[in-house]
Structure formats: C-alpha cells, structure tokens
C-alpha cells in the first residue's frame, strides 16, 4: 500500500468535489476490494475519499413498483431485506452465495458493481497483465487459466468479473444510477460493465469523476420461478467457476418470459437476450433449456485449463433453468 491522503465526504456534492480532477483518487466505502488491491500494490491511489457517511444507505420503493437499493447498503442488509427476499429471491440468493458473512457485512452494493477481477496475473505484480499494466501482455493466455473467461474475451485479456450479485442484477435488468459533474444519469445494467477489447484496464462505463448512488430493480422480480446456481471448487467462500441466474415466467407449461445470465465466464456478467427470447413461447422443459444453453455457448472458447467451463456452463444453465421452472415462491 502506498501512502495516500484521506478525506471524508459529508455529502454527495462533497464526494464529487473530491473526485473531480484527481486522476489517482478513489472513493472507498466497504473497502473489501480496493484495500485488498492496494495492499497487493495493484491499485495505487494517492487520494481516498471515504463516502461511507453519505445518505445512500436505504432501500426504498420506486414509483415504478420496484426497489431502489442505495449504493451504500451492505450486501448483507440487501440480501436479508424482507422486500428483496420476497420479491427478488434470486438476488438474495446470489448475494448470499458470494464471499463470506463478514465480507458481506462490509461490502456495499456500489462496491460490488465495481469490484475487479480475481485473475491471478492481475493480482501478482511480478507477472504481465494488460489490465494492471496496459501493454505488458496477458499472462493468463498460455498460462494458468482455469478460472478464466470463455465468452467475450479478447487477445488482450481473458479475465472474468467475480461478482455473484451482478449476475442476478443482469438477469433482473437492473439500472445503475450514477451522479457526476454533468449531473445524474441512469445506466442500463447491460451497459455498465465492459468487455475487455483492447482496453481491459477499463472495467466499466462509469466515468472516473462519477459515483454510483443506487441500483434500481424493476418491478418484475421473477419471484415465482427463479434461481441462482453457483458452481465452485468448494462449498462456500470461493469464486464461481460458473454461475447462472435463471428466471422464468411460465403459463400453462409454456415460457412467457425468460432471463438468463452467467457469472464466472466473461469480463462482465454475461446476459444473453437472444437465448432468452428463444425460450419464449416454448415449453418449459429440458429440451427447450438445452437449446437455450447451446445458444448462449455458441461462441464460447476455452484457453486450455478452462475448456471444461464450456461443458460446465451448458450443464449449469440446464440445471438452473430446470430448478427455476420447478421453484415456487420461497
């Protein structure tokens, strides 16, 4: 960790003032990812703006019948909120599948969106990584890549996004509310995270001078038929090899609406709307689900150690959709 200066923002405006014009400034809330990366010398901000005292710590109803999750509400409080639990059980499950109880007590919703990859090479400053040091190369391509991406990767980066919560948010088509010197704006979840392309150092489309204030959940929560399936190397406290957020609306045995998003497979939570649309109107059965899985993985590509993820993702999608179809309101 390098020396930095520290200030505490008392208001959103205060926070924005702190952020503007300081290239090496980072806002800090839960700290679970940023401080970790600073200790590893991967991130070296010279200024930290503590935003934990901002009034962004509430979960509120929206006019559209959804919920607004304040950026500073902890992951634990979000997952255990009765409204989230009953109306968005998939989201609650996804959050509880991530990290540990302690970390969820610290980590915030805003921070969860902004967490960075767990790629070994990104974390180890003794190795090449285009995300950490643009132009240094990608160590994982041709290296140890068991946990890496099978979708949407580039020759510059095959890292994955590590969040569980974000996979459910992608499937729910949440919106991210952000604010900055140019005012407030809303970013559709799909457009928030980026694919690596030739600039893997940039994870999201949040401008450097903007901060996340809330996550809006639409009214439609798929509470009746949804699930979050996480497949990992141990039963708890491990990142996903593959995870699936699956949500269905079913009438008379037929799918009337579908949502499907994957974690652990790409640089961003991977939602496939084409596969979702292909499910609509088809019977809610294994045959339809298998077609959807094939569609999602049509362009999947492995890099050696992670080849298994393609088959695993197919199996996980199938299983999650079956579980979602079978599930009832918790």
């Amino acid at each position: 960790m390098r020396a930095f200066s520290y200030s505490r923002a008392e208001s959103v405006a205060d926070a924005l003032k702190g952020v503007v014009g300081h290239g090496e400034t980072k806002v800090v809330a839960g700290g679970t990812n940023l401080l970790d990366l600073m200790k590893a010398d991967v991130m070296r901000p010279t200024r930290l703006v503590d935003i934990t005292r901002l009034p962004l710590n509430r979960i509120e109803e929206t006019a559209e019948g959804g919920l607004r999750l304040g950026a500073l509400v902890t992951n634990a409080d979000t997952a255990h909120d009765e409204r989230v639990r009953s109306r968005y059980p998939m989201l609650s499950r996804a959050i509880l599948a991530g990290a540990s109880a302690q970390l969820r007590n610290m980590a915030t919703n805003g921070g969860n969106l902004l967490q960075r990859t767990r790629c070994y090479y990104f974390y180890d400053t003794g190795t090449p990584c285009n995300k950490r040091e643009p132009g240094s190369g990608c160590g994982a391509i041709g290296g140890v890549n068991r946990i890496h991406a099978i979708l949407g990767a580039s020759e510059h980066c095959i890292a994955t996004h590590p969040s569980d919560m974000c996979v459910a948010l992608a499937a729910l088509a949440a919106e991210i509310r952000v604010t900055g010197p140019r005012g407030e704006r809303t970013i559709p979840f799909e457009a928030f995270h980026r694919l690596p392309g030739d600039a893997p150092q940039i994870d999201t489309n949040l401008a450097p001078d903007e901060i996340v204030t809330a996550i809006d959940l639409p009214a439609r929560g798929f509470a009746a038929h949804s699930t979050y399936l996480k497949v990992r190397d141990r039963q708890s406290y491990a990142f996903a090899l593959v995870s699936v957020a699956a949500a269905l609306e079913i009438e008379d045995g037929k799918v009337t609406a579908a949502r499907l998003a994957l974690g652990g497979v790409a640089h961003k939570p991977w939602r496939d709307q084409a596969a979702e649309e292909a499910l609509v109107g088809r019977p809610a059965d294994a045959g339809s689900f298998a077609v959807a899985a094939e569609a999602v993985l049509r362009d999947a590509r492995g890099f050696g150690h992670n080849d298994f993820k393609i088959d695993l993702a197919r199996r996980a999608i199938l299983r999650a959709l079956q579980d979602a179809a079978a599930s009832e309101t918790p």
Binding site: G30, G31, T32, L35, D36
Partner: peptide, 27 residues
C-alpha cells in the same frame, strides 16, 4: 492473510462481524 481470505481478523464493529484487515482504522 491480510486480504480478507481467511477470517482470522474478525472483530465486531458496532456489533457486526467484519474483517478488520480490510478496514481502515480512520473509517
């Protein structure tokens, strides 16, 4: 571990368990 990966540093802050290794004291 000093990286939030083991839980040995768990303390209660305002009654809630957290990893003290990933918490700046000033915060």
């Amino acid at each position: 571990c000093d990286h939030g990966q083991c839980g040995a540093c768990t303390v209660l802050v305002d009654g809630r368990r957290i990893n003290s290794c990933l918490t700046l004291a000033v915060m």
